[in-house]
Design a protein around this nucleic acid. Structure first.
Lengths: 214, 214
DNA sequence: CGATAATTTGACCGCTTGGTAAAACATTAC
DNA sequence: GTAATGTTTTACCAAGCGGTCAAATTATCG
């Protein structure tokens, strides 16, 4: 008999690990495109190349897939902000933060959309993560930025809204990709828009935050 | 007998107009919170205070409600960009564009989320609007911005990415409201964040775009 | 090999969903 | 009033949904 999910002798089979991987990969596709409610188990199962009951053998519920996906993705998603270094040079820290976030929007758009969908619909599954770890991290980095401003290395500004504006401008290229493409036109082929965006945003933020004599 | 939807003698009854209004209002609530697929007709009907078949008497399908909602909202949504005036002073045009967009994020968050949901999920229902009227409008305003840059009134920059960055930073406060609240904390009561955001964004964009000697 | 455990399948269930049919009810026009 | 039209309700599908079950199949280990 099978007491399968999270098996008896702890994550034994390589096959288990492999299938779960495939499911999460497929689920990322489906959830990021349709949101939680809009996604169906059948869709995920088909994208993962297995039958629905087979998928449910590995994850008991749709929510379980989603939860694990979010958990897994959240930490990597915040990594760029974590790398924000208080000791570094403010200008180059901000510059490389923007660049890193843009790279993530380019290379991991599904992850970005997964969160966007979730937050947009009221973050029913990740409220705690937002109010807990996320807020803590932002609070910490906001203090760093404030210190830079106090010591005159950058212009005085609200550090929270600075972070929000970096998030929104960079993630825009993942979350609103269709719109960006539509507006830029299809003659604008390739991934050049990320280069242009990087140039523009670096200019905007660096010049916008350059310390001014009051 | 009733050949009801879009009645015989053209939009006659006041009751028809009134009910359709109530339905669209309710649908805005539901669609903006759940996306198209996540929203159900029953939800909308309940929010509109009527039975499902009754609602379906006014709109034949769920898609019909959604389409009309999008059509109606799209034009008002683009109004601030349309107001962008080539003859005006660049700095104050940009400043008031930001302010207007922020006001819309504050006063019409549902409309913002309706579009965000739609675009996020690949814009299946509004692709044409994006590639047509929207692109045309943005192209036109991009030319205005480019002219300002050429004549040295603002810094040289990519006008498309400038517009994207204003869209994303301002709409962020509607679309990612839950996250913004979570990060700022509940001690941060009221709508003060919009004031702070306005101050920050105006500073960022004005200083970031100030013409520099090359 | 055989036994045991892990995996996969097909059939199924109860609920929700988008949508319909027809008749009851209300309103208006004469 | 009454006839025609407009509106609402009740009852109802057929399909899709998340999820279960038991049996069939496959892998693993001695």
């Amino acid at each position: 008999m099978a007491i399968p999910r999270a098996a008896k002798t702890q994550r034994r089979t390589r096959i288990q690990e492999e299938k779960e991987e495939r499911i999460l990969e497929a689920a990322l596709d489906v959830f990021s495109q349709n949101g939680f409610r809009g996604a169906t188990i059948d869709q995920i199962a088909e994208a993962a190349g297995m039958s629905k009951p087979n998928l449910l053998y590995y994850f008991r519920t749709k929510e379980a897939i989603h939860r694990q996906l979010i958990d897994r993705v959240l930490s990597t998603w915040l990594e760029p902000l974590r790398a924000f270094d208080a000791e570094g040079n403010p200008e180059s820290e901000i510059r490389s933060y923007i660049r890193r976030k843009l790279e993530m929007a380019r290379d991991f758009p599904r992850e970005s959309r997964l969160f966007a969908n979730e937050v947009l619909q009221g973050a029913p599954h990740i409220e705690d993560e937002l109010k807990g770890p996320l807020k803590a991290l932002v609070d910490e980095k906001a203090e760093v930025i404030r210190a830079w401003a106090r010591s005159g290395k950058i212009a005085r500004c609200d550090p929270y809204h600075l972070i929000f504006s970096i998030w929104s401008t960079t993630q825009h290229y993942a979350d609103f990709d269709v719109q960006v493409r539509a507006v830029l036109g299809q003659d604008y082929a390739g991934e050049g828009r990320f280069e242009d965006a990087a140039r523009f945003l670096e200019q905007l933020f660096i010049d916008g935050l350059r310390a001014r004599k009051a």
